[in-house]
């Protein structure tokens, strides 16, 4: 089973996770820039974080045979802090980088005017840079948040077929699908969404334009949830081809809209004499 996790925050994960993910079949991932748990107070903190997503984290991933790409944005939560909003002015120089495959994650947190401004501005940046956008739906007041999100996307210059709506569930999948956007589902170890409910959604909705992710980060989460969905799909009678479409071809098609996916990472050689292995040093 080849797996592309389209939404996972590896900065918060260990090398054990990388190893387990590789063993489970993960060969590619996208790490969206997001909130780090501790609020930041200056743009420079964001820049160091973005640089890590373009430097150190892809290096770590490559050591475990996993292709790492990222999405860059000012997240909605911190868009509310005027100390952080100058990040928006600096985004263009990040959005031209080779491994940036979307603007994201953007969207709403508390649905404030500052979030309106940041969302609209960043959808425009995606359009300007030929990038798709990863738009999450809020955890609180989700259905209303989704409606407002779709309205803002429709008013933007970015076509809905270049937008991935994430963190969907049973209550939001219908409206999201009607919008023409790609559909992302984050599978958590708690009640938000689990693999069996995901299988049920796939049964009613089908596999087209559906992406499944672990959204694993510093909170309670599981980087192997993508694999668990694949296993649950097979157990429920889906074919290997269905699983491949959801766990590999759909994320490749969506992020491929950027024209920047590079999926040819060599297999890891194993640790060399206990040192970190050399990768891409030639």
């Amino acid at each position: 089973m080849r797996i592309f996790d389209p939404h996972i925050h590896m900065t918060s994960r260990t090398t054990d996770d990388y190893e387990a993910m590789y063993t489970a079949g993960v060969r590619a991932l996208v790490e969206p820039s997001f909130w780090l748990g501790q609020p930041r107070t200056s743009p420079a903190s964001f820049f160091d974080y973005f640089d890590a997503l373009l430097g150190w984290e892809p290096f770590r991933a490559a050591q475990y045979g996993i292709a790492h790409h990222c999405t860059i944005a000012l997240n909605p939560k911190e868009a509310n802090d005027p100390r952080c909003t100058p990040v928006l002015d600096a985004l263009p120089r990040y959005l031209v980088k080779d491994s940036v495959v979307a603007v994201g994650e953007i969207g709403y947190d508390s649905m404030t005017p500052a979030e309106d401004t940041a969302l609209a501005a960043q959808l425009q940046m995606a359009a300007d840079h030929g990038l798709p956008a990863l738009v999450h739906t809020p955890h609180r007041d989700k259905l209303a948040g989704l409606h407002r999100t779709v309205d803002v996307i429709r008013e933007s210059n970015l076509p809905t077929e270049r937008v991935l709506l994430d963190h969907l569930n049973e209550t939001t999948v219908k409206h999201a699908a009607d919008s023409g956007c790609w559909l992302g589902f984050s599978i958590y170890p708690d009640t938000k969404m689990d693999e069996d409910r995901m299988v049920t959604i796939l049964r009613t909705h089908g596999t087209e334009k559906v992406l499944v992710n672990s959204a694993a980060d510093w909170g309670r989460s599981d980087p192997l949830k993508t694999r668990k969905v694949g296993d649950a799909m097979l157990a429920a009678g889906f074919s290997e081809d269905d699983v491949d479409q959801v766990l590999w071809r759909n994320p490749v098609a969506f992020y491929g809209l950027s024209g920047r996916l590079q999926l040819d990472i060599p297999e890891p050689e194993g640790l060399h004499e206990g040192n970190s292995i050399l990768r891409g040093g030639e």
């Binding site: 002015d89 600096a90 263009p92 120089r93 031209v96 980088k97 080779d98 491994s99 024209g259 920047r260 590079q262 040819d264």
Partner: peptide, 24 residues
């Protein structure tokens, strides 16, 4: 300016996807 680049510098950033990672 701190936030924009000369055009050749945009090419500098895009070299991997335009010419292949091995030639970047």
């Amino acid at each position: 300016s701190p936030y924009t680049s000369h055009t050749w510098e945009l090419r500098f950033a895009a070299a991997g996807r335009q010419c292949g990672q091995d030639n970047a």
